[in-house]
Amino acid sequence: MSRFRRRYGGNPLHLLLHLVWVFAAGWALLRLLEVRPLLYLLAWLVGAVVLHDFVLLPFYAALDRVGRIPLRGAVNYVRVPVVLSGLLLLAYFPIITGGGEQVFSRVSGAGYSEDYFGRWLLASAVLFLAAAVLYGVRAATAQRTGARSPGSTS
């Protein structure tokens, strides 16, 4: 037993559970390979990890580090609306950019009735406005009571 642990680096249950996974996930991946070639599937699976781990995350982490220094205590008043606006863009990307409009209009009988890129811009403006109002109120309160600048709370 201890020899197995030394060689494998985990207990037998660890190995067994991973073997269940290898075969179950392998089954589903083979089903996908029946409808798309291997390279296409790999492009998606590897692409998903690369896009998140090596593009999106380093990008926003670097942006945060750059913005944090000059903003100091006020960083969350900028950080939160930027991230919320970014999340809206991410989750509604095909609607905001109009990528889905052609098929939408074919199946539903009419194109977009609104300019969704414009709506995203306005939604972002509202988010920044809310942050500005909150910051302004807290700054004014802090000044009156002689406390520290806002941003010292969560």
Binding site: Y8, V22, A48, D53, G100, E101, V103
Partner: peptide, 29 residues
């Protein structure tokens, strides 16, 4: 043990991103 665990996490992350991406694409045609 760690190698196979990391492989499973890689597939967990990529399948999650794939599911959310295709879900978003499909609901918006």
């Amino acid at each position: 043990a760690q190698a196979i665990e990391r492989l499973s996490i890689a597939l967990l992350v990529s399948s999650a991103v794939f599911l959310f991406a295709t879900g978003i694409f499909n609901t918006s045609y």
